[in-house]
Design a protein around this nucleic acid. Structure first.
Lengths: 215, 215
DNA sequence: TCTCCTTGTTATCGATCGATAACACAGTAT
DNA sequence: ATACTGTGTTATCGATCGATAACAAGGAGA
């Protein structure tokens, strides 16, 4: 078999640390789950992409389902590492704006997370319940609190917190998650920083007209 | 096996017309493809839901792939049967507004179409290319023409046609497509007409502030 | 009634799936 | 050097997949 990074013909005398294997499997799983959904993704393809063998998935993650949850956990932890809180900054408006910009940057760099979420969002399932209860619910509540605080301070467009959430995910993040389709339509061009920033400005123009184009 | 509508214990002496079978298969396929995606959908479950046998799918549609395309064609034809054109009505603004309201009503009644589209949108595939070239491209062009005409007449929000498309699909239709997830978040309540109309008003408030709450 | 075409029904094929057993090997401690 | 533990590797299991062959049955026209 072909291992991703190990020395090829020499026979790979040394062994990768376990955490490297699990990390490579998580990265590979993110792409495969994002591309084909849970049912459509194949553990053999995931292992191949990670330069590992298929049974190693069960060894390190016990099951395909657990691998999926670990993948979602991993992607959310990556996001949390870059997202500021809603309570920082000189004003509630500046704090909310900072979160928005940071969220959009992450969504552009890691479209796999929003893809995985949207692929699960259309049908009830234990996975969807876990996803909402574990990750989406607390983040939705945080956005709601941040938005109501912002609105109380006189900032933000005339939208409810739920509508802000839907604009954020449906207009903001979906722009990157659905890039393959939007690209075929000629909407989404190259994946550079300018493309990402331009869409972020349009999102801000809808949610926070006063803040658009300020950064 | 259990047939959907035929008389049960009597043994179904009569045979369903062929077009009824294909129609039932299309309706069943729409739900299954929308719930599990192309790869995750099973022809056996589709047949069972339609009260038919699995080989009948290949008989009437030759392959799973052709069934998928026929399902998309069918859903789009249902939509076209209710959508007015962009050139009717007393003004370009009234025409665009009528299209928006009609589109939202269809998306609420047939969330399967937007679900199928979104499930294909995240990864390149021959199906996605066919979907864009056959159905999305002409509709996107029509929306673009309608919007630029509306903007030229001084109506509509300060958004490009591409952004209008993304708001329409990502904020408007996705509200119904992702209803299972939004319901778990407490955003999407019952599926009644009032829920649909309320969201339509919020969409109009974003795209056409002057027209919001007018109908 | 007999014929013929369409469609329903059953059985089954090869491929692929996730999971596990059995074994080989690497690395460390003794 | 030996033993032990953790991990890679191979082989394979039962289940399910889409597709097809073979046959039965319905239904219209003669």
């Amino acid at each position: 078999m072909t291992r991703a990074t190990a020395t090829e013909s020499a026979g790979a005398r040394t062994r990768r640390p376990s955490e490297h294997v699990t990390r490579d499997l998580l990265d590979a799983a993110a792409v495969e789950f994002a591309d084909h959904g849970f049912a459509g993704a194949s553990t053999r393809r995931i292992a191949e992409r990670a330069g590992a063998h298929q049974p190693q998935i069960n060894y390190h993650f016990t099951s395909k389902e657990q691998l999926w949850r670990a993948t979602v956990d991993h992607l959310f932890s990556l996001m949390d590492a870059t997202l500021p809180g809603f309570d920082g900054g000189p004003s509630p408006e500046a704090a909310f704006e900072a979160v928005l910009r940071s969220f959009m940057r992450f969504s552009a760099e890691h479209p796999e997370l929003d893809r995985i979420i949207n692929l699960e969002a259309t049908a009830p399932s234990p996975r969807l319940e876990w996803l909402v209860a574990t990750h989406l619910r607390p983040r939705f509540d945080a956005v709601s609190d941040g938005w109501t605080g912002l609105r109380a301070a006189g900032g933000g467009a005339d939208l409810t917190a739920a509508e802000v959430w839907e604009v954020l995910t449906g207009f903001g993040a979906l722009h990157f998650a659905n890039a393959p389709m939007l690209s075929l339509l000629g909407i989404h061009g190259e994946n550079g920083r300018s493309e990402s920033d331009a869409h972020t400005e349009r999102l801000l123009a809808i949610l926070m007209p006063a803040a658009a184009g300020r950064a």
